[in-house]
Write a protein that binds this DNA or RNA. Sequence first.
DNA 1: AGCACCTATTCAAAAAGTTGCATAAGGGGA
DNA 2: TCCCCTTATGCAACTTTTTGAATAGGTGCT
Lengths: 187, 187
Amino acid sequence: MALREAVLAALLEGEASGYDLAKRFDAGVANFWSATPQQLYRELERLEGEGLLSARVVRQERRPDKRLFTVTEAGREVLRSFSHQPSRPTAIRDDLLVKLQAADETGLDAVITALEQRMELCRAKLERYDRLAERMRGGLDEERYLREAERVGPYLTLQRGRSHEQENLRWGAATLAVLERRRAEPR
Amino acid sequence: MALREAVLAALLEGEASGYDLAKRFDAGVANFWSATPQQLYRELERLEGEGLLSARVVRQERRPDKRLFTVTEAGREVLRSFSHQPSRPTAIRDDLLVKLQAADETGLDAVITALEQRMELCRAKLERYDRLAERMRGGLDEERYLREAERVGPYLTLQRGRSHEQENLRWGAATLAVLERRRAEPR
DNA sequence: AGCACCTATTCAAAAAGTTGCATAAGGGGA
DNA sequence: TCCCCTTATGCAACTTTTTGAATAGGTGCT
């Protein structure tokens, strides 16, 4: 149910089209929520209908026209009220962990491969996050940025994404070591 | 789509009823997948229908009867084939992060409270994971357990849960510090 | 005796999310 | 020129997940 609020929150960073949002919410980049383009277009429609967003059409010469959305005062109010509601704890749901859970039965090889692939992805994501963070800070060191910047929310959520990937790598390396050892020396 | 496989994987640890599974898959405890009782009962039906599980009814004296499920050879085969399929990367979806993303607009107080509550939950979960891990090891030190135990999958997924909560706490503390400082000294 | 809670399962309905496709215009490379 | 990619949006069908019950016997507490 937080897709509404996630869209509003994302639009606080500035006017955007559905397409722009789709990129921010792409599962591969999203640092605080993920969603598909279809979900976003539907949600934008709804939010506009409820008066939480206002839209304006921008005619473009060499591109299809696009609709840019902005959060209205009513939208901001929804966010304020949302921030007071209890957050539900997040649940783990990861294909890879299911495979690992069953690994003793299914054989270690496939899981080792899957883990290696996942870690490669994590590394790529981590680098991307680092570049993004650097661009956000715009020359300032982190300490100063966090004290002086106008908005820190987006930076802090980005750091959560970063820390998640980093921890994935740390755990992944340890797990890989265990699995490879057991493959080499079965009990 | 991995609920099927998650149920099969969970049942590798031994025969269980829907009710038993519901406890293992509870969002507050689940270390490799989470699901509600309703999802599980439906999935158990389906899996039995497909011959991936077999069920037997156990009459009980002072409790309602229950149905205990076991993974069949066909079920194990499904798991084996699943372990070779590509895993989709996980996406972040967390209420709390949405609030944090919007925090500069909505005010810091509510988010600080939410973060503190979340961290309290994390601490509780971490302790529970630690007790679970200790019980799994059954006296052995981790190093030896991981080398000699018959099955390590469940232990390794538990460790992922643990590392996730720990990282949540680490990041949470740092984030809290930033937010509290900004609350005390607004730019 | 009454109440709250635990075991054990199931139904119905709504909300949320995914998948596949369709449109439409322009850009870039073989 | 043909094909594929990017921008930009949308529909329809489908699956998955969540929510909110209802049932039914038993335990423990006051």
